[in-house]
Design a protein around this nucleic acid. Structure first.
Lengths: 223, 223
DNA sequence: CGCAGGGTTGATAGCCTTCAAGGTCTGTGG
DNA sequence: CCACAGACCTTGAAGGCTATCAACCCTGCG
């Protein structure tokens, strides 16, 4: 099954048949099924593999001694993760929903990158994108209010999602995951979403939000 | 002058004469002098160059409409920056102190990386490190208290610094820069530092802190 | 010697958290 | 098909951490 050629470089749908340098890894990949809340790998595990989300949603998680939790990022269909870890994983990776993950041995990636400039370039591009995203989130956590964080998070998910409906944005993760991603509490996430609903910016469902006013949302996100 | 061979991969002193894949870029580099608060490049500038700190300290900065400011990171001697930007720079880069920066054309880097696996690998390593650092900072901003942020920041700077004295940690940046890096205000930075001083963890000077108790500092940092 | 910029300290306020109590949905078993 | 249990979500009240506002201090420099 030519899984990878169905999946876009950045997670959006891409023309089937377009070759991707990452396809070079395909023959060394193994498929992994992870059910909801199951770990793909744990913090501290040897970072022998890089992974790619085939379907579902994965979160990276860092846990502090006292239980405080940071969700580093949410990975969607097509996204790679675990690429940055060397030696051991700094964050664990857990399934937000039942997911399928394809796993590639890091040694094989490194070896192939030595002789395949296209792959090497592709990896570099992916990490550049990861860095830019991380810096964006740094601003979000460092200087934005709760409302701005949530608005910009929704806008980000909107951009990254496969756009099932033009107006409904699916959020596979629970409120707690969102809170731990944005440096907030569950209660604040609920309250802010409720306020946005009152203002007619979004409609709220358990599984996602209806984007009633994307312009207002962007404005609230202060981007 | 073989500048690069004097500078370590990770910013720490390295044996002179050890070849570094980055040396390949050296012939295409140009040296730039930037004085305090001067820009190396602005947000939105075309990202035609990657830079490296030869001496001094650089900060990356993102400004919001209303004046809120996020300092993405501080770059010290040997650090590369601007590596992640494609098209245009997402953050500006400014000199914290009078600095010397070496600048390499991105096209040249890309071109060389195509044929030099060692360089390509090195770039990948640098971005991996950058990603890990960014994720660490995400945890810091998302889930840590003011005291924890400052303690872990000091610990980070201690790790990265060239260790002039074994006990005095130089902080080239002002309190405002630290605040904007940690998502705090100047006043909070001052108060927390004062509290740490009262507790005998650090001594305070305008230009840095004396690390009186590194163990206590790590504990305060909640790492 | 006085000024300017950065640093420090104090008082008050506000945003978000914490603590608490329902409410709602989903899946499971009768 | 329905009832129930538990997880998740939502809403309310009170408190705390950090921001804001304000004043003062210190230090380097013209």
């Amino acid at each position: 099954m030519p899984v990878l050629t169905q999946i876009a470089p950045s997670g959006a749908a891409r023309t089937v048949g377009q070759p991707d340098a990452l396809d070079l890894l395909e023959q060394f990949g193994t498929t992994l099924r992870v059910s909801r809340d199951e770990e793909v790998y744990a913090e501290g595990d040897p970072a022998d593999y890089c992974c790619r989300v085939i379907s579902g949603c994965i979160r990276t998680v860092r846990l502090m001694e006292d239980g405080r939790r940071q969700v580093g990022e949410f990975l969607l269909e097509g996204d790679l993760f675990g690429l940055e870890d060397v030696g051991t994983h700094d964050f664990s990776a857990e399934a937000v929903t039942d997911s399928v993950v394809r796993r590639y041995p890091r040694r094989m990636i490194e070896a192939l990158a030595e002789t395949r400039p296209a792959l090497s370039r592709r990896l570099r591009e992916l990490m550049q994108a990861g860095l830019r995203a991380a810096h964006e989130r740094l601003l979000r956590l460092g200087r934005k209010t709760a409302t701005e964080r949530i608005a910009s998070f929704l806008a980000e998910m909107d951009r990254r999602s496969a756009h099932a409906g033009p107006t409904f944005l699916e959020l596979p993760m629970g409120r707690a995951d969102i809170a731990d991603h944005l440096g907030l509490t569950v209660e604040t996430v609920c309250r802010v979403l409720a306020a946005m609903k009152r203002d007619g910016v979004v409609g709220i469902a358990r599984t996602g939000v209806e984007l009633r006013d994307r312009r207002a949302l962007r404005a609230l996100g202060a981007e």
